[in-house]
Write a protein that binds this DNA or RNA. Structure first.
Length: 118
RNA sequence: CGAGCCGGCCGGGCGGCCGCGACGGGCCACGUGCCCGUCGAGGAAGGUCCGGGCUCCACAGGGCAGGGUGGUUGCUAACGGCAACCCGGGGUGACCCGCGGGACAGUGCCACAGAGAACAGACCGCCGGCGGUGACGCCGGUAAGGGUGAAACGGUGGUGUAAGAGACCACCAGCGGCCGGGGCGACCCGGUCGGCUUGGCAAACCCCACCCGGAGCAAGGUCAAGAGGGCGCCGGUCUCCGGCGCCUGCGCAGGCGUUCGAGGGCGGCCCGCCCGAGCCUGCGGGUAGGCCGCACGAGCCCGCCGGUGACGGCGGGCCUAGAUGGAUGGUCGCCACCCGGGGUACGCCGCGGGUACAGAACCCGGCAUACAGGCCGACUCGUCCG
């Protein structure tokens, strides 16, 4: 995700869930008449200055990018996801961040197909 | 051996597995795909406090204003940087510190304390006179002693005096003039004369000397697209609508203007000069992509030579990150260093924890700042031994 508009749209209109040090905003795919026009699922990250200095912010961003890469195929095409990071994330480590991300994603993405077992 | 002082350097290492970004090569099911190889953060990359390169704009001039620097001589592309030296201050010493021009060009300010703080002044004291038996009071002289202060108008000794005082004298310190000597210079050394002595702050205004165009890689260049308009062709239900091609590069409204000059440039203002037909405001709409710049440079390493040194010259070798939601991450093992507690056959063994400050974005030279831990070298002082 690159445009500021995509970020604000996803944060404002998407479903929200927080677990551990991360908060995710998920906006499901919009119905399109032609399937070929649907872009692949996109992810953006928000790491504010409250999280830490430049070194800390970039390190968390890298960890999250690698974690999110593995989970990208699980999202439907056209979906938009914004991951916000809360202060203290640097102390949790990559493994715990991945766990937080899984739990939060389970809430918002699973809720989309309610009542159905995966 | 113990204290200390200065300079230089490093700032985790090796190896699996899964990934990321560039570049080169190969393969085709040509997707901007897969495979292989190489390279991939710092000493401060960071702060953005100075200086320069580069790019665009400007480059008649004059006056005024503005900013910066401040011992000297060098180094350098340049600097507010660095080196050596000078002066002042500190330390036994190695060495360290200094925002180090001018206070007889002018203006201004010196808190508190104190009697008095800059054409000085008299609280205590000292001396004399007068009054009083006396304690003491009044008047005058004085600045040696006491007290206040960061700072009190030279210091020591003498002459002198009622007591005193550069009032006078000798020496010393300091200031100024002259002469001689040394140094490129800042300045230093010596001699002589002078009046006896004239405080500090210029990071207060100010004065002096020297320096200074403006903006910045979102600079700048290039390709493509675009709303609207014009022309041509074709089609239809033919004063209109749709499609294609080419050219231009948006439309509407208002205001000020076209030699009676809007507006712009000459860093700011004034004068003056130059360019000059567009410019300004509002509303609505479009785009917000690619490539170049962009990594061979005041470059890095080694050696020799010149120089006290900063640095320079010559020779040889090397190519060393280029992202653009912005590439270096995750995980495991071994080793190194430090800490904790445990065992020990004093050689060590295994366990747990920790390893800083910090992430390139046009590029270089500096400065100051942050930093776990460690290495190397020169020198000084003290103690002991030979």
């Amino acid at each position: 995700m690159r445009r500021g508009g995509d970020f604000s749209l996803t944060v404002r209109r998407g479903r929200r869930a927080g677990r551990g040090a991360v908060v995710v905003h998920y906006l499901g795919p919009v119905a399109a008449e032609d399937a070929r026009d649907v872009p692949p699922a996109r992810i953006g990250f928000v790491v504010s200055r409250a999280v830490g200095g430049s070194v800390v912010r970039h390190r968390i961003l890298r960890q999250l990018r690698h974690l999110a890469r593995d989970r990208l195929p699980a999202l439907p095409a056209g979906a938009q996801l914004v991951v916000r990071v809360k202060p203290g994330a640097i102390d949790r480590g990559a493994a715990e961040l991945g766990h937080d991300l899984d739990l939060a994603l389970g809430r918002v993405v699973g809720g989309e197909r309610a009542g159905r077992k995966q």
